[in-house]
């Protein structure tokens, strides 16, 4: 019977230990800046809103069974292509996933990892609704992704076509 008590003591111990969070070990090597950093949001300060120009538009589609819908626009904030921003429309929606980032790239598929030249614009602020991400200078990239970075999974993609 003492052993039976020990079995249940294990359970009690497990409950008691529930307050202990998991430990995290970072396995990333020295950061090689494989992903071009996006400019800080502060870079948009002082931009003349009246000079905005629509560069490209498109609509999101889901990838690998994820939900992806809604419009996206690439706009030039200074009218000359020097400062761009990616805007997700009110009807934007993507599946909630761990570690979602917004990526602007020239590639039509990301595979499982970002490569040099892919621009990580930042963590997706919300899985639905309007939002804006500063891009910086126009590098000619016209494909945007919502990408689950920890698991390397494409969640949603939009092909941005030149605005009429």
């Amino acid at each position: 019977m003492r052993v039976a008590h020990a079995v249940f003591a294990l359970g009690v111990l497990a409950v008691a230990a529930a307050g202990c969070g998991a430990r995290f070990v970072d396995e990333r090597g020295p950061r090689d800046l494989a992903v071009a950093p996006a400019p800080e949001a502060g870079d948009l300060a002082g931009v003349d809103a009246g000079a905005e120009r629509l560069i490209a538009v498109g609509r999101f589609e889901g990838r690998a069974g994820h939900v992806g819908r809604g419009g996206a626009r690439l706009v030039s904030l200074d009218g000359a292509g020097g400062r761009l921003a990616l805007r997700l429309d009110d009807d934007f929606e993507a599946s909630p996933v761990p570690g979602p980032v917004v990526v602007l790239t020239a590639r039509e598929a990301l595979g499982t990892a970002l490569l040099p030249g892919d621009r990580a614009l930042g963590t997706l602020a919300a899985p639905r609704g309007a939002q804006e991400y500063p891009v910086g200078a126009d590098g000619g990239e016209r494909v945007a992704f919502i990408f689950c970075q920890p698991f390397g999974v494409e969640v949603a993609r939009v092909l941005l076509e030149a605005a009429p």
Binding site: A17, A18, G21, F24, T123, Q149, P150
Partner: peptide, 28 residues
Amino acid sequence: GIPTGDARPSAPAGADEEAQLIARSLPT
């Protein structure tokens, strides 16, 4: 079922945002 594991692990204080994202995606 009793949730004794950690559903939202976090990286140590001072870690960058990507580390937090990775930690949160790996619950116990």
